[in-house]
Each structure stands twice: as structure tokens, then as C-alpha cells.
């Protein structure tokens, strides 16, 4: 039973990622797109965690943690660029 629930969860997250991709495409403004990217990386973390359960390996945890760290830095850098036109002041 658990395997099919895990697959259903992965399907729902994939649906959420598709919705984010739609927002990323239609915009309409730059902060909207940054927000869509931000949500996409959070959903990607969720997908990786569930995929690790599907494969029964803890290996994917490191990948998820790396995405969490790098995604946050990426969001802040992009927003900072919009705010100042410069990333490192």
C-alpha cells in the first residue's frame, strides 16, 4: 500500500511543479517569476525526499539539503539584484 501512496504523492508534487512552471512562464512581473522559482525548489526538495523513500535510500537527503541551501541563496541574490541592481554591496 505504501508504495502506491508514495507514487500518488509524487504525482501530486509533479502537478504542483507543473502549476509553478505555468506561473514561471506567464509572469507577468519579475518578482512573480522569482517567487515561482522559489516555490519550484521547495517542491523539488519534497520530490527528492519522497523519491528517497521510493528507492529506500537515504542518499537523496544530501541532495535535498543542498537544494535547500542553494535555492535560498539564489532567491536572495535575484531579489537583491532587483532591489539594487547589484548583488554584493
Amino acid at each position: 500500500m505504501l508504495q502506491s501512496v508514495i507514487q500518488l504523492t509524487m504525482f501530486i508534487i509533479a502537478l504542483a511543479l507543473a502549476l509553478n512552471l505555468w506561473r514561471l512562464c506567464i509572469g507577468p512581473s519579475l518578482p512573480d517569476r522569482i517567487l515561482a522559482l522559489d516555490t519550484m525548489y521547495i517542491n523539488a526538495i519534497a520530490l527528492l525526499v519522497v523519491f528517497g523513500m521510493h528507492e529506500q535510500k537515504t542518499l537523496y537527503f544530501e541532495g535535498a539539503l543542498l537544494i535547500a541551501v542553494m535555492g535560498f541563496v539564489g532567491t536572495v541574490a535575484l531579489s537583491k539584484y532587483l532591489l539594487r541592481g547589484d548583488i554584493i554591496e
Binding site: 501512496v5 500518488l8 502537478l15 504542483a16 502549476l19
Partner: peptide, 30 residues
């Protein structure tokens, strides 16, 4: 129990993304 947590989490993730797609202006989407 594991299935409940997984499905609840996935539904919340879906609702968040739905909000991002559906609401009208940027600050509401936030």
C-alpha cells in the same frame, strides 16, 4: 500514519502552488 503525513504534505504543497497560480496580484500570491 506515514501515508497520512505524506498525503497531507502533498496536498498542502499542491494548495500552495495553486495559490501561486490562481490569486490575482503579486502580494496575494506571496
Amino acid at each position: 500514519i506515514i501515508s497520512l503525513f505524506l498525503l497531507l504534505g502533498a496536498l498542502f504543497a499542491l494548495v500552495g502552488s495553486l495559490g501561486l497560480t490562481r490569486l490575482q496580484d503579486f502580494f496575494m500570491r506571496l
